[in-house]
Design a protein around this nucleic acid. Structure first.
Lengths: 366, 366
DNA sequence: TTGTAAGCGTTATCAC
DNA sequence: GTGATAACGCTTACAA
């Protein structure tokens, strides 16, 4: 019996109990993995089995070269035999590192998110981190609450398409590492689509087809990207001397696209650009219901190239954004920040976009 | 300076029978300079400010009526003032409860998952729990690893469309609370679509249109639901005296549907039922590329009613499953299990499905 | 290289 | 009702 083992086993007042005072071998023997009631094996169990001190187990399993090869082998074997898994909570306490990252999104059901989630999950698990996903349901209020709740339990946060005010974001970024997706805030690292280029390509495509008056279905006022797309559109429209109207704000959903239909039609624009594909799809569905043929009577385009954009008929012309990549990069940058690497401190990382021309755009009716 | 604060700093705990009398205050001081990484307050800080013992803070913030109203108010005010957030890791250690649930899915990018994730996230956050999402990428191997890694850090696990072997699932369920979605295993609670009814409705619909030979595009052999659908199809085909062939196994993806195209066509079946909508969509896309008109030349149907099924042209006839509900219910059942409620111990919970007839099914060519 | 023991922030048990 | 303190499982100086 090891002295430290005795201490740990001694029934204190707050001992979860083991009525038979010390010998747990009966049930332990049978199961092999369940030494303590309700719990898994600990480094103490492993240490006992391997005949070493718990701290040695910690070292053997943690750092590679800190113990002798022979000891490490013994410890590994014992850990294996007991199905030992390190308790991340217990580890988090002394180290302050939880190896957990949070991804906060506005709306989980928006397909734009899927790519981001997948990329983030991949990058996180590749780094041995756990990813918690939370949804703010398009509400800045709810998002703040979510972030507050998550903060103490994670090493850092990726805010994707956040609806938070800039000051709030700065504040949060001051307390914990943060990376933004689809939003730029001074002093906070972010991963963004290259809005200007994407808009330029799309408007160029439309102008090339002969369109001279455009309508933009904007997203929520809280959407930074929607605002930026609008600004870029204004620049391009001015440069190419095209007519342009903004219709919105709208919810960034299918319903938002449906709701904007009449106003867009009333604008007499010959091409409608939606803030995102979801809105473009809703708009096209409503057009179809009203007997307006896309693209013959009206061209429609979106942004993001979500799942479904090539399914709808006609397939949607859109500006593809590398969503999976955005998820991956944001997590990688977050991890770098957590490691204390401040080299890319507050930069905006622009992701190239790609114009995908499909069936929903054509020359305007003559 | 509060006495308890001093005592907390004094050598205690493991320091049995060997009081070195030396003070640890130097290192304590050094640490005290920068409190917690991130500067967050602890219950000690709150207690100091409120002029009470840390344990009182714990009680005041934890259980409602365990302290006097006056004390509770003082504690709450102090906590507020310090922006105190309870450290979930520290709390998890003595309680064994992490208030974290895991959702493990085969493929995050499969739209079937979206509804499940959303429902699970809603139910979890409604219960004050954090949801970690992990992906097994359709590999049972990877799924086992993921589960092992997650287990010590969560209170329970929802396995959605798991690719694990039954014994492995039973084993996991023996170590931690588990609820299954789209999979039944003896002794483990599960949430399932009512396969038999859904299949009966769909086959009835097809038979009513005049189809007499059906082809089933099966999913992976590891997919429990795919197997069940096949069995139910066999029953129905037999009962209605219809021809039926199985084509597969296939990956449960768009590519899987594309790949199965030629074999399905060769079967001369007039109606093709895919294991899921994704495969049905892939199949329809390939049919379109080959000039085969759906539903005139061939009827196609799927299962799940994912986002995109009503977008594709013709819109897909499918058996809708209440995915969001499945996510919610599974988390609710998991929580009940975690609370120790064994009443619904190992039941299969069947969710009603709904036949959604759209444009992809029609009478067979005469 | 390995053992010793303090400490992470919280809860639970006991004593007053 | 509140204070005191061991314990949760792990890491990490410091000692040996």
């Amino acid at each position: 019996m090891r002295p430290w083992r005795d201490w740990a086993r001694e029934p204190g007042r707050y001992d979860r109990g083991d009525p038979d005072g010390g010998d747990v071998s009966d049930s332990a023997q049978a199961n092999g993995a369940r030494r303590r009631p309700g719990g898994a094996a600990t480094i103490y169990d492993v240490a006992e089995l391997a005949g070493v001190n718990p701290s040695t187990v910690s070292r053997a399993l943690g750092k590679p070269g800190r113990v002798s090869a022979a000891t490490e082998a013994r410890v590994r074997a014992a850990a294996e035999q007991l199905h030992f898994r390190m308790n991340p909570m217990a580890r988090a306490l002394p180290t302050g590192r939880t190896n957990t990252l949070a991804l906060v999104v506005a709306d989980i059901t928006n397909p734009v998110i899927f790519g981001i989630v997948r990329g983030a999950e991949q990058a996180a698990s590749a780094a041995g981190c756990t990813l918690v996903v939370a949804e703010s349901q398009e509400s800045g209020e709810a998002e703040g609450t979510v972030v507050d709740r998550l903060m103490p339990g994670v090493d850092g946060i990726v805010l994707a398409t956040t609806r938070l005010a800039s000051e709030r974001i700065t504040d949060i970024a001051g307390r914990t590492p943060v990376v933004l997706i689809n939003r730029a805030v001074d002093g906070v690292p972010s991963v963004l689509p290259d809005v200007a280029t994407g808009v330029r390509e799309l408007v160029g495509h439309l102008a090339g087809l002969g369109h001279t008056s455009l309508a933009y279905l904007s997203g929520p006022t809280t959407s930074w990207v929607s605002e930026r797309r609008w600004e870029a559109l204004l620049d391009e429209a001015e440069r190419l001397e095209l007519g342009l109207v903004e219709i919105g704000p709208n919810p960034p959903t299918i319903e938002g696209g449906v709701a904007a239909y009449r106003r867009a039609l009333a604008s007499r624009a010959t091409a409608v650009l939606a803030f995102n594909d979801l809105m473009a799809i809703g708009f096209m569905q409503e057009a179809a219901r009203n007997g307006v043929v896309v693209p013959d009577a009206l061209s429609v385009a979106g942004f993001d190239d979500i799942f479904g954009s090539e399914l709808i008929s006609p397939a949607l012309t859109t500006v593809r954004a590398p969503l999976v990549l955005a998820g991956q990069l944001s997590v990688q940058r977050l991890l770098r920040r957590i490691e204390g690497d401040e080299t890319d401190a507050a930069g905006e990382q622009l992701l190239g976009t790609e114009l995908v021309v499909r069936g929903s755009t054509a020359p305007p009716p003559s």
